[in-house]
Structures are given as C-alpha cells and as structure tokens.
Simulated assay, not measured.
Amino acid sequence: MTHLTRCPLNPARARRLTGSPQRLHAAVAAAFPPPPSGQATGHRVLWRLDESGHQPTLLILSPTPPDLTHLIEQAGWPRLATADAPGWETRPYAPLLDHLHTGMRLRFRLTANPTRALHRPGRRGLRTALTAPADQIQWLLDRAAPAGFTVPVDERISPAGHHVRVSATRALRFPRTTDSGARRDVHLHTATYDGLLDVTDPDVLRRTLTDGIGHGKAYGCGLLTLARFAA
C-alpha cells in the first residue's frame, strides 16, 4: 500500500527546515519507525517541498502513513492541531495508480536533479549539474519514455517545443555527515518542472511514481505527482 501525504508548513516557523534539505530529510525520516531487524522496508520514501507564494507544503510518498507530530510542533501550527485534523492529510495512492491507462493526459509536477555524467578514461564519470533551461528540459524528455510517458509537443510552450517548463530552480549547498563521521559539502542544483504528459505504459509509470526519477531523492528530488487535465 502506498500513501501520499500533504503537510502545509508555517512559513514563519519552518525556515530552518525549508532552507536545508539535510534537515528536512531527517525530519521526514523521523516520521517513520525503523523497520524490524532483517525486514525489508518496501519502496523508498520520496518527498518534495512545494512553495507556492509564501506557503510551503511538504509532500511525502511512502509505503506506510507517516506520523508528522514532531514536524507540526517544529514548523506547523501545533495549537490548532486536533485528533481529527493533526495538521497533515494522508490518502491512499492506489486509486490514482489503478486509474492510469494508455493515452491518458495529465498535468504533472516534478522537482529533479538534472545532471550529466562526464566520462573520463579509466575513471568514474563526473556528474555535472545542468543549469540551462533547455538542457534541463531535454534531460526530462530523455527520461520520459523509459518512465512510461511522453510529453506532448507544442512549439509555443518551451524552447524544446513541448508542454513543459522549468518553473523554479535552486542551487543548494549544505554539509552532510557520512557514515564514517566525515563532513562533506553537498552541492545540489534542482529544477521544478510543470507540464503535461501522456501515459504510454501504465505499469512502467506506476513504478516511476513510486520509485522516483533521477538522483538526489534523499534531498527532495524525484517525486513525480499527477493531476487531472481539463482541455
């Protein structure tokens, strides 16, 4: 079972979290108990921070419902929370997944970490961020078919001639502590895409929705969300 959770955050109290993907990652991870020893966790937890105007909203896709009590206490409206309205809303994701069919047109949003691997003879490829909008859009188009969808063409919409635009970008730098205890700086360039998609392979798209797209998933990248499209 998969669940999608929406949690509005208090912009006056959430700045410490929203300004650091590392802290927000830790807050999301704390919403779930550790799995029993030796037991698989199912698909990974995906999350994304949407910021519309001055209202940040945290989206979480997870195999089990999260408990965001700690997040509401830190960055929500804790005095307004009740048992019936704890400050977040979780819904089963199965109705959307089951509804997908070939040829269906939907709106989508995705925050991703578009990169290109620069190959070096005899060495591991160096992953480099794509920062030009045209390159970022092409990155997404290259991954659409293997992900179970296509982006319809419209030459009026974007430089690539498709129904997609990069609506926001962020260049982030934050410290990360490795398993060995060393501290390293993480550099992350993100692009938020808004557009239309046509479903070409429902089964593959279902896997994409639960597995995510691209790198940086621990830091709020990869979660593709869909909405109805009214022509």
Score class of each variant (00 low, 15 high):
167 S>K: 01
127 R>K: 14
228 R>Q: 13
169 T>Y: 02
174 F>T: 13
140 L>M: 10
140 L>Y: 09
195 G>T: 10
165 R>D: 12
67 D>F: 07
167 S>P: 00
136 Q>Y: 00
106 L>W: 01
169 T>N: 01
14 A>S: 14
174 F>Q: 05
5 T>W: 09
159 P>S: 12
7 C>I: 09
220 G>C: 06
150 T>N: 13
26 A>H: 13
223 L>G: 00
131 T>A: 13
62 S>D: 01
39 Q>G: 04
95 P>M: 12
117 A>G: 07
170 R>D: 15
58 L>Y: 05
196 L>Q: 15
211 D>P: 00
202 P>M: 06
124 R>M: 09
168 A>W: 07
197 L>I: 08
161 G>L: 08
69 T>N: 04
38 G>I: 13
214 G>C: 05
179 D>Y: 04
108 F>A: 14
5 T>S: 10
52 S>K: 14
87 G>H: 12
151 V>P: 00
146 P>C: 05
170 R>I: 00
164 V>E: 09
109 R>Y: 01
158 S>F: 07
172 L>E: 13
219 Y>S: 10
7 C>L: 14
115 T>S: 02
116 R>N: 02
231 A>M: 01
76 G>S: 08
90 T>F: 02
9 L>T: 05
77 W>K: 05
224 L>T: 08
146 P>V: 07
153 V>H: 13
189 H>N: 13
198 D>R: 15
7 C>G: 03
116 R>L: 11
110 L>S: 09
41 T>D: 05
183 R>H: 06
215 H>T: 14
89 E>R: 15
59 L>R: 09
59 L>I: 00
121 P>Y: 02
141 L>E: 09
199 V>K: 11
94 A>Y: 03
229 F>Q: 12
145 A>R: 14
42 G>C: 02
129 A>T: 12
146 P>Y: 11
203 D>C: 07
153 V>C: 11
55 Q>W: 08
16 R>K: 12
